[in-house]
Every structure is written in C-alpha cells, then in structure tokens.
Amino acid sequence: MRERHVLGLSGGRDSAALAVHMSQSHPSLDIEYFFTDTGKELPEVYEFLGKLEGFLGRPIAYLNPDRGFDFWLEEYKTFLPSPKTRWCTRQLKIKPFEKWLWPSLDAGDHVVSYVAIRSDEDYREGYSSTHPNLSVRLPFREEGIDKAAVNEILEAAGVGLPKYYEWRSRSGCFFCFYQQKIEWVRLKERHPDRFEAAKAYEKNALEHGSPFTWSAGESLEDLERPERVNAIKVDHDRRVERQRARMVANPLRSGNDMMDIDELYGQAKVCISCHK
C-alpha cells in the first residue's frame, strides 16, 4: 500500500496555476501530473503543456482513451455531444482517468486527487470520488485563491496564460459545444481547418437525425455567413462596452485587456475535467 498524489491538467489556466502552486508550496509531495488527451485539442494546448512541463521539471503523463472521438460518435449513432448528453466527457476524459488509477486503487493504494476549483467558484463542483481509496482535495478553495490570484501565480512563475486566451476563454476540444458564438467566429479565423472539421461533423450528424448542433439554435454553416458573423461581432462589442461601463476603474488592468467570456455571457457550467 502506498499514497499517491495526482493532479489533472486540462491545458487551461486554473489547473496549470494549481500545478505551479502545489510544486512551490508543497515541494516534498511527489505529485503525478496528467493530461487526458482527446486527440481533438487545439495546438496551443500542447504548446502550453510543454511550457508548463518545463517549469515543473517533471513529465506530464498523457492519458489517451482506448477509442477516440470518431469511434464514440458512431457508437452514439452520430448524435453530437451536448450540454444535456456529455458523452464526450465520460468516454474521453473520465474513463481514461479511472483506467489509469483503478488498478492502483484496487491494490489498496490511497490516491489524493487535486482539483483546481477556485474560491470564487461556489457554483462549481469537482469530480466526485467513486472509489473508497480515492479522495479529492480543492486547494484553491481551501486557501481562498480566486481568479486574480490564479493569474498572478502564472505570471510570477513566468508561465503566463495559454495563447488561446487571446481569442478563447477556456480549454477543451476545438469543437466544444460550450463555446460562445464569438468563439466559433474566432475559431474560423484562427484555425479554419478545425472549423471546417467541426462543420463536417455537424453536417453528418444532422443528416443522420441528430437533434443537436454545436452552437445552440443554429448550424455552423448558418453561423459563418458574412452577415451573421458581422451581427455576432457587433453584439459582442456591445457586451464589451456595457461591461466596461460597469467596471470599477483598476489601475492594474489595461483598458485593452481581453475580458473573460464568462464576464460577458454569464458563468457556464462547463465540464471540470475539460476546462480547468
């Protein structure tokens, strides 16, 4: 029997900051860092994980599902995953994590999993342990670390933010259904090949009777029409201006800083294993 400490990385800001924080505040802990790779990530995610790995000075274990997204899409009769049927999270994130840990847990090892839920996220819950030997810790919530402190941790360590934060608010597959419409527009501008791949998945799903589109209420084919793109951008700019008008002046924040999508569109109850 032994005790293991594991910390999952999503390729996002919060989990990266937790890895930095734990390595600095608990250097004696032999923490195993892992990333569950769906195979549908943005290139900026892999770039950021490589940078983080260099800071940590230890390898990040890449966990891959036995079957990829295309296999499971066929298993689910080409029905796209959605906020109501998040089969992608179960099959591509949770199952590989459990397969990696369960032999150790069943052998009697005790595993502590550290999850990056911040102190300002009372609405969010983490992965619930389904094994008696697995316990979950939330260091940021325990220590009162919020979003501003997370950014400070990454900046102070020289790691910074993933480059996709220039245009997207969270990590996850390039076709994630939690994206706002402005993020779909930016995906088309930044990674047109991936936008086309997402559009092809959607077209095939709709032709086979799927009730879902990636973006609520409209297909990507409709969303990419020039007049629709312009309307989305205008709406987004108006949201930004309204939010700026409500903000208290902060001398430490540039007026040109990109605002978090959640500030503009409201908090999304996203998958913790994909977006933290």
Rank of each mutant, 00 (worst) to 15 (best):
D30C: 06
F212D: 07
S10N: 04
F71S: 11
Y114W: 13
V240S: 07
V248A: 12
E143C: 07
L206Y: 01
E53I: 03
G54V: 11
C173N: 06
P192R: 02
A61G: 03
L49G: 04
Y76D: 04
Y164S: 08
G158F: 09
R246Q: 08
R186N: 14
A245P: 00
S169Y: 08
R137Y: 07
G266S: 03
D70P: 00
E143F: 09
F195K: 04
P83S: 02
R58Q: 14
E121Y: 10
K40T: 12
L49S: 07
E189N: 09
D120Q: 04
E202P: 00
Q243L: 12
S104R: 15
E189Q: 15
V240T: 06
Q243V: 07
H21R: 13
F79L: 08
H26Y: 13
T89G: 03
A249V: 11
V159S: 07
Q179G: 02
L223M: 15
L56M: 09
F175E: 01
E207S: 15
E3D: 12
S15M: 10
F35M: 07
A205T: 01
S104T: 10
K40P: 00
K233D: 01
R90S: 13
P59V: 05
S254L: 03
E196K: 09
G160T: 04
H275G: 01
P192M: 07
H275T: 10
L252Y: 13
G126C: 06
K181S: 07
Y62R: 14
N256H: 11
A107W: 06
K147H: 11
A198E: 01
H131K: 05
K181P: 02
D37F: 03
L206M: 08
A16G: 08
R137V: 10
E41D: 14
E241P: 01
E3Q: 13
V234Q: 13
L56E: 03
S254D: 13
A200R: 15
K233N: 08
I31V: 15
D14A: 06
V159R: 08
E74N: 12
K99M: 07
M22L: 15
L264E: 05
N151C: 11
L154P: 01
S82K: 05
L223I: 14
S171T: 03
S129M: 01
Y123N: 06
V159E: 02
S23H: 10
A157T: 07
R228T: 12
S82W: 05
E125N: 12
D109K: 07
R168H: 11
Y114Q: 05
K95V: 15
W72D: 04
E152A: 14
